[in-house]
């Protein structure tokens, strides 16, 4: 049986620690502001300036020329390009937020606590491994998901304010795909990043070293972006739902594996 009061106690402690680390808070804030304001500005004003070509010149494709079945009728080239960017490029890129923020938090919470030696007193406290893992995983998950949701709210506001004239009013989010990305895929992806970081933390000598394990999760994001931009495939609602199911399965598998590996690594980190 999970004793939630103790889980909450560790979780609040971890948040308090995160909030006092300039590096951790800075990472979360910078990503939120970048994806919420800077990226939409680059896309919208880039499209306006270039007349619809917001991808690098070396890629011989104009975003507006890509098939966009859900795009509203009667958009000009610039608006169509902006619409394409927010439908094809930004959703996968958006997953960088939970990935980066939760990885940094999890590395600090698991590997960092091990590095600083404080994990020993937690293991000696009346907490089960499951309670301790749950507390720390939730503590790392919440800032990643919170940053995603914050960035999404900012992005919606900034995008609509900057491009309402092109679409004849507020238009973002462009479809239900965004809701699936933000509400489902993003937390599941963050949890995957946390589980991988916990696995790496069982062997890593420092929090920085543990962070590197989840770098592999950047690969699917890049594949989704370039695959769509180059016209290889288009990710629709059904693909996102399937991805969410796969992620949920991976998360469940890693949750069964990661805590045992981590605590075993911590318990036998020193022999006297």
């Amino acid at each position: 049986m999970i004793r939630w009061s103790r889980v909450l106690c560790v979780l609040v402690k971890d948040w308090r620690e995160f909030s006092r680390s300039g590096w951790l808070v800075g990472t979360a804030l910078a990503l939120t502001v970048y994806f919420g304001v800077v990226l939409p500005a680059i896309i919208v004003f880039g499209a306006r300036i270039s007349g619809g070509a917001v991808v690098p010149i070396s890629i011989p494709v104009r975003l507006g020329d890509l098939p966009l079945p859900a795009a509203p009728e009667g958009l000009d080239e610039v608006a169509r390009s902006v619409y394409a960017a927010f439908s094809l490029i930004v959703p996968p890129l958006f997953l960088v937020i939970p990935l980066a923020v939760s990885t940094v938090m999890a590395a600090d919470s698991f590997a960092g606590e091990r590095e600083r030696g404080t994990i020993e007193v937690l293991l000696a406290a009346p907490l089960t491994e499951r309670e301790l893992f749950l507390a720390k995983a939730l503590a790392s998950l919440a800032p990643g998901v919170g940053a995603s949701w914050g960035a999404f709210a900012l992005m919606a506001l900034a995008t609509n304010l900057m491009s309402a004239d092109m679409f004849g009013g507020w238009w973002f989010p462009s479809g239900p795909e965004w809701c699936v990305v933000v509400a489902l895929v993003s937390p599941l992806y963050a949890f995957l990043a946390i589980s991988l970081t916990v696995l790496a933390s069982s062997r890593a000598r420092s929090a920085r070293e543990a962070q590197q394990a989840s770098a592999i999760l950047v690969a699917p994001i890049l594949a989704a972006v370039f695959g769509q931009v180059l016209g290889g495939f288009a990710i629709g609602l059904e693909h996102l739902l399937i991805s969410a199911a796969v992620l949920a399965g991976l998360d469940a598998g890693l949750v069964a594996l990661a805590p045992g590996r981590f605590f075993s690594g911590v318990r036998y980190m020193r022999v006297d």
């Binding site: 106690c9 006092r20 404080t118 020993e120 000696a124 907490l127």
Partner: peptide
């Protein structure tokens, strides 16, 4: 009450917060 060989207090918490955290953790 266990004192490991390595220093076992949370540097980013105040002295009072360290004690309060462990008091709550031990119920």
């Amino acid at each position: 009450g266990y004192l490991p060989e390595v220093p076992s207090v949370y540097g980013r918490l105040t002295v009072r917060e360290n004690l309060e955290f462990f008091a709550r953790l031990y119920g």
